[in-house]
């Protein structure tokens, strides 16, 4: 095994060799789903997510925090360096 320098992004793999031909789509699909854009001054999309907090597993729903200020942070992965 060759040692790989690990950066901040999670190392990923994938299929190698000849590319497998993906079956051609016969029928034009319905228009691609539009990714909602986040805009300042507009409502944040609500979501629910599994959570770990102070020794307990649970779930957090963004709308449960209505009435409070929220800082929602995303990051590349646990045990990363930055």
């Amino acid at each position: 095994m060759e040692e790989v320098e690990v950066g901040c992004a999670r190392p990923t793999g994938g299929p190698v060799g000849e590319t497998v031909e993906e079956p051609k789509e016969v029928v034009q699909q319905t228009p691609k789903e539009v990714t909602p854009m986040i805009k300042v001054g507009k409502k944040a999309p609500d979501f629910t997510a599994p959570a770990y907090h102070q020794g307990k597993f649970g779930a957090v729903k963004l709308s449960e925090y209505l009435g409070k200020w929220v800082i929602l942070c995303f990051y590349p992965g646990d045990f990363t360096f930055v």
Binding site: G41, K43, W69, V70, C73
Partner: peptide, 15 residues
């Protein structure tokens, strides 16, 4: 993975 996004959301749920 997710990039380092940070969102400030007010008590009305507005970004």
């Amino acid at each position: 993975v997710e990039t380092r996004g940070r969102f400030i959301i007010d008590p009305e749920g507005v970004v």
